[in-house]
């Protein structure tokens, strides 16, 4: 099976020294891939590079067997990639319904109602909040709005940057369940996570990013079981 997203030798940054250096990474269709690593390792930069928000110095990014390295952000949504940034990921003064609606503008779905219905089935909590400004919601609900907005463009690939940052443990479980639910409807997910242990548990594949380089890859379970990874990145203890 060929990869949906394939990154080869990617070196990118923000104009100064490159932040990520020679990354190789494949994401198979209908899987959840998790990137973990210490703060400042370049995890967000990697996601942003896929989304054309950094300066790419070298390497290639292919999506669906098509080279997307030079494409602009606005061109990526229509071909089936959507992203949720790490922070400021909802339009706070727009209502929840409007947030979802904005998600359809770049890639108008054939049946807007049906897509919205599917998103609301995934995130039933939002149904009662549709008329409320997104800025008035709790952190977990905002994360749902943000993911919902991204899903409204019916992406094949969803990029999530730390979807559980700052959430309570209870909400954390819910978000991970939702991510599995999103995978179940056929969307491929590449996400960055700080809650590495829980994330790897649901991941089909994990990547450890250190200092801008891909330190180690494997299935979620392999990484959880790896002594080295456990000691350095999962805070010791057993899985």
């Amino acid at each position: 099976m060929s990869a949906l997203l394939s990154i080869r030798g990617l070196t990118a940054g923000y104009g100064g020294l490159p932040v990520i250096d020679g990354i190789d990474l494949d994401v198979a269709p209908r899987t959840v891939s998790v990137i973990i690593g210490p703060n400042g390792a370049g995890k967000s930069t990697l996601l942003k590079s896929v989304f054309a928000l950094t300066r790419i110095e070298a390497g290639k990014i292919a999506f669906d067997d098509r080279d997307i390295t030079g494409l602009a952000t606005a061109e990526l949504v229509p071909i089936g990639i959507a992203a949720v940034p790490q922070s400021r990921n909802v339009f706070t003064t727009l209502t929840v319904a409007e947030n979802l609606d904005v998600g359809t503008y770049a890639a108008p779905p054939r049946d807007r109602r049906a897509v919205e219905e599917r998103v609301l089935t995934l995130f039933p909590d939002l149904r009662a909040k549709l008329g409320q400004p997104a800025g008035t919601l709790s952190g977990g609900q905002r994360q749902m709005v943000a993911m919902g907005r991204a899903l409204m463009s019916e992406p094949k690939l969803l990029l999530l940057d730390e979807p559980t940052a700052g959430l309570s443990p209870a909400y954390l479980e819910r978000i991970f369940d939702l991510i599995l639910g999103i995978r179940a409807v056929g969307v491929t997910i590449l996400m960055v996570e700080q809650n590495a242990r829980q994330a790897l548990r649901i991941a089909d594949r994990g990547h450890v990013l250190v200092n801008g380089r891909n330190f180690q890859s494997g299935t979620g379970m392999e990484l959880l079981g790896d002594e080295n990874v456990r000691r350095s990145f999962l805070g010791g203890g057993t899985a």
Partner: peptide, 8 residues
């Protein structure tokens, strides 16, 4: 930024 990420 989010608007750009949303493809607007």
């Amino acid at each position: 930024e989010l608007a750009a990420v949303s493809g607007l």
